[in-house]
Amino acid sequence: MNVGLEQFLTVSFLLFALGLLGVIMRRNLLVIYMSLELMLNAANLALVSFSRFNNKLDGQVVVFFIITVAAAEVAVGLALIVALFRKRPTAHVEDLATLKL
């Protein structure tokens, strides 16, 4: 049995579903952020496998940009979490339910 595009896409979908489950169900701000990274990685895997099985390198360039943007996004997001934590020392999303700090 040869491994083709469908197997890689199935792994990517399951990984995306796991990340989505984490974003919906976990209540810790940092774990939600890690699940977001998992979803980004699932998209990366789908793009790389499409690129491989269609003989085009464009998908891998897009993944390169996604990784760069994800690094910047993590830096900004974690800075926001730290700033939020200074105002209100909790990492639980249900304690951060008000609009005004």
């Binding site: 940092l30 993590v74 974690l78 730290v82 020392p89 990492a91």
Partner: peptide, 29 residues
């Protein structure tokens, strides 16, 4: 998938930078 460069970048950027940032924030908070 023969994406050698992206595999290296994945380990360098994610395992090397992003996770260290996560751990740093967890320890800081």
């Amino acid at each position: 998938l023969h994406a050698f460069f992206l595999a290296a970048v994945q380990i360098l950027v994610y395992a090397g930078a992003v996770i260290v940032l996560f751990l740093f924030v967890i320890m800081l908070l």
